[in-house]
Amino acid sequence: MRASARQVGGLGEAGLTGAYLAPGSSFAEFLAREAPHLLPGSRIVGTEGASLTSDDGAAPSATTAVALTYPGGIIMAGDRRATVGTTIASRDIEKVYPADGTSAIAVAGTAGLAIELVRMFQLELEHYEKVEGTGLSIAGKANRLATLVRSHLALALRGLAVVPLYGGYDTERKQGRIFSYDVTGGRYEEREYHAVGSGAVFARGSLKKLWNPQLTSDQAARTAVTALIDAADDDAATAGPDVGRAIWPVVARVDESGYRRLPDEELAAIVHEIYEGATR
């Protein structure tokens, strides 16, 4: 009776015992003990040695995201395209999310796993906050994300890589901070700007020319959108702003007052301004 209730994923009516009462404030660690089959990176039996990439036409890939700092905060932005091989799987996918009230996460790579990683990370931060009664430092959050990325390594080696980009406002230092990752969970702090995904090379080239340490928040948002447009210019898997359907990149600003996603009207204005500047 009890064993069968447990199998549902610790969601039976067996009472709160074992892992529920163990010490610790990490949801991922609790999940690994109580319901390991629900973990995003969990091994799927019978698929060892198999490899799967977006080119096989199976799993969609999310493409380019950029982040940059400005005095007072950060801007994070992502295009809206997901591809399966050479086909467009989605033209309005979102790759930039609030991680919590004061930080943002963007993802590139296998879309299904990337969105699951975001969900797990958001929950991890919220869970810690509820259990401990206080939030983690921004470096602590960045390190937690590194651990979650590392748990995906087995899947990454089989062609299902997910690479996040993380950034937020450091209330101690009173500045925005950005962290980049590799598939092994390596965590690197970026002082200026960074880009991930298939169009990252072109976006980074654009940011290299446009970024400077004195950008205002509005200039920083414009720079991020310009970098995405430049990436879309050269990378088939990255989409520029879709003026016809009014689908704009997702652009988020994190500053002292917290996470804020820029509204569509503001983005439409930025895009028109960039295109007008380009044709003049």
Binding site: L16, Y20, L31, A35, V131
Partner: peptide, 30 residues
């Protein structure tokens, strides 16, 4: 802490809307 874990696990496995006070109370009662 066990209640937070129970609620977060349910919300993660199903959906945020599926976590109710009744189910948390039932788990505590058990």
């Amino acid at each position: 802490v066990a209640g937070i874990r129970y609620a977060d696990l349910r919300g993660y496995a199903y959906d945020r809307a599926d976590v109710t006070a009744r189910s948390v109370a039932a788990a505590y009662a058990q």
